[in-house]
Simulated assay, not measured.
Amino acid sequence: MENPTGELVNQYTTDTTTNSNLTSAYGSSIKARADLSTGSAGSQFIQTSSDSQNGQSLIVMYDTLSFATSNNSPTSVTMSLSLEGLLSNTSPDGYATSDTSISIYDITGYSSWLEESAYGLGMVTSFTKVATAAINFAVGDQYWLDLLNQWVSFDDMAYDTTGQTYSFDLTKSLTFEADPLKTYGIRIWTSADANGSNEGISASDFYNTSEVGFTELNGATFESGSGAFLANQGSTAPVATPEPSTILLLGAGLFGLVAVRRKRAAIQ
């Protein structure tokens, strides 16, 4: 990853697990990991005092899902999304953020739902979003957080430029009608962002703490295109036969503003 020039560095894999540890030219720590079998992911961007570039560590997982029910009728299913980690900021005009989201799309009838873009591999934008949930946290300068909050609703945030470390922990759920006659695409996104300056540093450490899973299937079972989704999580439904259509996208780069939300408890 790296890049004093501000360019993105993207890595892709069709493996069902991935992790990457990178160091910028200024010594900042950039990490990301994902495991489809447990539904877990993590990202970290921790600046050094010599690094005045803002940056992002981003991990995105993609898979496909299909459902079966006893009477072949749609049924309501519920998934959980959780995020916990640490944020701090000493920059008088900086901030640190982290966010995670899960989105379900109706991709029925499509043989492919991912495409190349200037920023690497991404999702085709024409699909109908069936359900989504997001968690967003932030710590930093009030001006920047208020500006970001115009585009993103933070779940929790702290106006703080003293360098105090804040701990965040939140779980949300999303519910949708799973139709056995449809195919769904699932996208799981986890990001850590740090935007410090020469006068201070920012740190976003959410490396070990993003997780998704089914909490209610109402008698339905599911199959994933990868055959790996939640296989090792002890989920409430069986996971199906492998068919390699899963893609994990890892992108860590130095570039502009990023949105975030948070849940906070100061660590003494």
Rank of each mutant, 00 (worst) to 15 (best):
A203I: 01
L254K: 15
D160G: 02
Y95T: 00
T90Q: 08
A68S: 09
Y159C: 01
S245T: 12
V60I: 12
S103I: 10
T75M: 13
S49V: 08
I102F: 13
T64W: 05
S98T: 02
Y95G: 00
Y95L: 00
R33V: 03
A266L: 06
I186L: 14
N21F: 05
I30V: 02
G120E: 11
T90R: 07
S73K: 14
Y184F: 10
D141I: 05
S117F: 15
F214N: 07
D51H: 07
I59K: 01
I247H: 15
S37M: 14
S197D: 07
G85T: 00
D160I: 04
Q164K: 09
Q233R: 15
L181F: 09
G94R: 11
S24Q: 11
D169S: 15
G122D: 11
M123H: 13
I186Y: 14
A228S: 12
S117T: 15
Y26P: 02
G256H: 14
T100N: 08
A41F: 09
K172T: 07
Y105K: 02
G251I: 03
Q142K: 08
S82R: 10
S204I: 03
N19F: 05
S40E: 07
N72P: 11
Y207D: 01
T23D: 05
L174D: 03
Q11D: 09
F127E: 06
S40V: 01
S70H: 11
S126W: 11
E84S: 11
D35E: 10
